[in-house]
């Protein structure tokens, strides 16, 4: 990695650390405790940003998969794979923090309503995507099959978003983005804390992407060197 890239990566990492420290102060000190749910409602400041990050990561998979199928360049495949892995990690965190929040509020860990079920389906689609990537050999049709799955999987996201509006669900409708305006009906301190947390998670996405792409490029380099120098003798 060049010095300039290394420096940019270091600046981004420090910005992320600072953003998370500010977000933690806002979540645990600044923002008031919600009156009906109590302190457990603070899970929202992790749950919503994790969901945003997962959806954003899968959107990147969708875009990079289209670009890979169109241009046939390995770098788009690398970006899609890196983003899918990050998306699965954060979608898993959504599926873990959601039930932890639901248990004291709804009295149940899980209900099979449209929002929860469609989110679980999204997670299963991208876990399948990763299994396809890890379980099949290099040089096969793997990248193309995965790209198609990456594109099809993304179609579940609009369904997840609108599920709470189309059906009567346990899961509440979106509070941050609603027809009444951004953050309407929420205390301004809650809106600013949520935005801060969303910003910190978004920065984290770019830090993780940088590291994951570096790993994949190193793997390609190892494979290329092995093929050119070790296996050819």
């Amino acid at each position: 990695m060049s010095d300039e890239k290394q420096e940019n990566s270091s600046i981004l990492t420090w910005l992320t650390v600072i953003a998370f420290l500010l977000a933690m102060v806002a979540i645990f000190v600044y923002v008031p405790t919600e009156q009906t749910e109590g302190a457990v409602q603070r899970i929202m400041y992790f749950h919503i940003p994790a969901a945003w990050l997962a959806f954003f990561a899968f959107f990147v998979v969708f875009l990079c998969s289209i670009l890979f199928l169109w241009k046939k360049e390995r770098e788009w495949d690398i970006y899609a794979l890196a983003s899918a892995e990050i998306g699965v990690i954060f979608c898993s965190l959504v599926l873990i923090t959601g039930p932890i929040w639901a248990r004291p509020i709804w009295g149940a860990w899980w209900v099979w309503d449209a929002r929860l079920t469609s989110t679980l389906i999204l997670w299963l689609i991208y876990v399948s995507y990763l299994m396809l990537r890890y379980q099949t050999d290099m040089g096969s049709m793997r990248a193309r099959f995965a790209a198609v799955l990456g594109i099809v999987g993304f179609l579940d996201i609009p369904f997840i978003h609108f599920s709470v509006l189309w059906w009567r669900t346990f899961h509440p409708p979106p509070k941050m983005i609603s027809s009444e305006g951004l953050g309407a009906g929420m205390d301004p301190s809650m809106v600013s804390t949520l935005l801060l947390s969303l910003g910190a998670f978004t920065l984290l996405y770019f830090v993780l992407m940088g590291q994951r792409i570096k790993v994949e490029m190193m793997r390609d380099e190892v494979e290329r060197l092995k093929k050119d120098h070790l296996y050819s003798n």
Binding site: E37, V40, F46
Partner: peptide, 15 residues
Amino acid sequence: MDNLEYLFAANIFVW
């Protein structure tokens, strides 16, 4: 109605 143990558990999983 604080349920701090749930908030703690969610934090452990996220971090």
